[in-house]
Nucleic acid binder design. Structure first.
Lengths: 184, 184
DNA sequence: ATTGCCTATGCAACTCGTTGCATAGCAGGA
DNA sequence: TCCTGCTATGCAACGAGTTGCATAGGCAAT
């Protein structure tokens, strides 16, 4: 389980409340780890009880109080321990691949518009990555260690999206060819 | 939830028992959908109760009886309905990416050997894909619709592994550079 | 005025998914 | 002979993850 560790990394990069974390998981961190606010609040309470993180109540005017968490010594130690554990292979859940094979038992043409929509989502994500790269890493020759590591992860995301777009074009060409060969 | 649908596709491609399905999920289907035998047995019972699949008891000598399942009419109808639903964006759980960002708060060099091991796993998987492609699709100009669709999914797997290998080389180069810059 | 959205946290109930264990006969190697 | 491993299914318990709802004040637009 790495949700704890993803939260630890995020809090080390910058302390924040559960709500703020949930938004980070919707945005940047969500690229490689997803979580809902429910999961995050539950795990934060457990981590605080275990002494991995420390909480500070912060009053705000015009909005509810919030609890700002930051990583504690035990959290850092746990992160170092976890880093040295074997890396689990990625768990894959690729719904579209299942649907493509399912299309053999139905009408392949029925998938085309959904694949097109899916492709648009990936194209938009790639554009966001490239824009974020320009904004957050304007000078690639002057990065500190933390930025270097953030950037190599971002490069992975960019290459993943490029590969996916190429593959989706391949999928669309295949579906269109099959739809032309034997029209329903 | 697509486990039901992944099972339906697999049973349409070829009927089989729960045990056989579990092995398929360890091998080919596991490329884009994972499941343990426990999940599979539970879902099979539910699907049979819902009339999506039909079971036939088969006695075997020298080994326990098995229940061979095959997709029923309701299952086919459900699959067609599901095919027309919107495709969910892939859920990403990329532990290695979390660890790479975590390395900024510990020793980047500590990750190198694990990334190397991870890279070997991906290289082996790519080799298996390429070998399977040779075996199952010897003549790429003579594929029927089902094989065309299976092959386009396999092409996606191959491209994913190639991209991942390139990225892991990039990660290793970055980690080694950081380790050389500030030795622990 | 009312509607809807944002910040901020949380409970309750549920489904999904994993882990450990059990059964039970057969095959193959040390 | 004992140990390991394969086929084949399943129970029980737990942890992970989702969904729906609740609270509660403030802000902005209609």
């Amino acid at each position: 389980m790495a949700l704890e560790h993803a939260i630890l990394v995020s809090l080390l990069e910058r302390p924040g409340s559960g709500y703020e974390l949930a938004r980070r998981f919707d945005r940047s961190i969500g690229r490689f780890w997803t979580a809902t606010h429910q999961q995050i609040y539950r795990v934060l309470r457990r981590m605080e009880a275990d002494g991995w993180i420390a909480a500070e109540e912060v009053a705000q005017d015009g909005r509810p109080d919030k609890k700002v968490y930051s990583a504690a010594g035990d959290g850092r130690a746990e992160l170092a321990r976890w880093l040295r554990e074997p890396v689990e292979p990625e768990t894959v859940r690729h719904e579209l691949a299942v649907k493509i094979r399912a299309a053999a038992f139905d009408d392949p043409a029925a998938l085309i518009s959904e694949v097109e929509r899916h492709r648009e989502g990936h194209a938009a994500l790639l554009a966001r990555y490239l824009h974020g790269e320009q904004r957050d890493f304007p000078d690639l020759d002057a990065l500190d260690a933390r930025q270097e590591l953030q950037h190599v992860v971002l490069r992975g995301g960019i290459e993943y999206e490029r590969m996916t777009l190429d593959w989706l074009d391949d999928v669309l060409a295949t579906l269109r060819r099959l739809a032309a060969d034997r029209p329903s």
